[in-house]
Design a protein around this nucleic acid. Structure first.
Lengths: 234, 234
DNA sequence: ATAACATTCAACATATTAATTGAATCTTGG
DNA sequence: CCAAGATTCAATTAATATGTTGAATGTTAT
């Protein structure tokens, strides 16, 4: 749908962007959209699946107006898309390439952080103890039936989709609900993504209570993107 | 080397960054470093190999002071490293993960640009004519000897490393030097990277003069990163 | 229709960023 | 040691981004 000098794209009317912007400027615009912690937070939530503005505002702790504006930034550069359903607007990632981009960003930034960390405190301390297991290994262990898979995200996120066969105990409630975990089997915790702290905390808590526990290398979005079995969701 | 509250990292003294910065803030800082066209330009040049500040300023067209400052931004977030050799400082990418990150950024941003473009002008016009060939296909064609590989970057960059067997005619000089190209064989042009315009222009020029020509899907950095045969360089 | 709700818009104060300029630092060759 | 060159630093200005507030829009249910 093209008007005189404005095109509609993704539900937004925008003036012709391409003519003047060099490719580098286009790339820079995408990077700029990624260059804010709240927006990365939102993207990580979107990586879990489609969410309404309100839901995103709630879980991210941002004001609704602020959330809306950040989401529009993400949409404008093509990282997210939106769908209007009645009075609600649902946002989601615009494609799997966005997951790849986020993963690449995490990898590079994480490497740098790790290097700095190593300098700051002579070496890693507990990080080794919190060694993660890979997706592949988790699949193998699940087939053997020798593990309990623990989803430590909030119930709403669990309900929207989770690793098939996982148990949901939010990180907050874990201490009170330890009894619900089957005895004997090692617990493998996961949450939103590779850098979601919930899983780290859960593993620490479990070990502190004498439960064998590790975390999965990455989170639910990566699991689903890999085409592995998922339960729940729309 | 740790002082009271400052650590030396990468030749820079920085105050403890980790304690306060959340992971998202760390990631955002890296993205912010990518969010400027001049810096992406510099990164693309660095992807070719190590370069001095002066050389980078020259090829990018930025002032030396400005170049230096941008490079320091890249270094601070771990995208680039520097090495001091006499009076010169040589910068380079800090690892292959940076190439991956740039590739992911290009892919996502490029997809978006393509979608917008398709809307703006009913459909691609010449883009199809400028269809690229993949690295793999180029390797095959080179083995057959049925192609002339043309490097259209400036001579300095060519000298610093190029695809083994390539001919160097800078894009600027191409029109004058058409005669140097062996007749008969299709010409395959490449330059700095997948979005380097030089190769596009070269192909357009060649076709305009009746020479069969296409460009390679990506550029020299990707070729070298793939472990394919390289000539020249330090 | 009207009220309640979800989302977006517009305007503002505050903070960051980018490029320029000129000076400061450091290194090498004479 | 001194002069020239390479790089970095510091200070300035103009431009841009962020988060808040309150109003505007559009949608559903009563």
């Amino acid at each position: 749908m093209i008007f005189n000098d404005y095109i509609e794209y993704n539900g937004v009317f925008m003036s012709h962007p391409s003519p003047k912007l060099s490719l580098f400027e286009q790339f820079a615009a995408v990077a700029k959209a990624l260059s804010s912690a709240p927006r990365l937070d939102l993207l990580e939530l979107l990586a879990q699946g489609e969410r309404s503005v309100e839901a995103l505002a709630q879980t991210s702790g941002l004001s609704v107006a602020n959330t809306s504006q950040h989401l529009q930034v993400l949409r404008r550069v093509g990282l997210a898309t939106s769908r209007k359903a009645g009075a609600h607007v649902f946002y989601s990632l615009s494609g799997d390439d966005v997951l790849d981009l986020l993963a690449a960003l995490r990898r590079t930034a994480g490497r740098h952080v790790a290097e700095v960390d190593r300098l700051v405190r002579g070496y890693f301390k507990e990080r080794d103890a919190l060694e993660a297991i890979s997706r592949g290994e988790l699949v193998r262990r699940m087939r053997e039936g020798s593990v309990t898979v623990l989803d430590v995200r909030p119930p709403e996120e669990f309900a929207a989709g989770h690793i098939a066969g996982a148990v949901n105990i939010p990180a907050r409630d874990l201490k009170q609900r330890l009894a619900e975990l089957p005895a004997g089997a090692e617990v493998i915790a996961y949450c939103r993504g590779p850098y979601c702290v919930l899983a780290f905390e859960a593993v620490a808590t479990l070990r502190h209570h004498g439960v064998m526990a590790r975390r999965v290398e990455d989170g639910f979005p990566e699991w689903r993107a890999a085409g592995l079995p998922v339960a729940g969701g729309a």
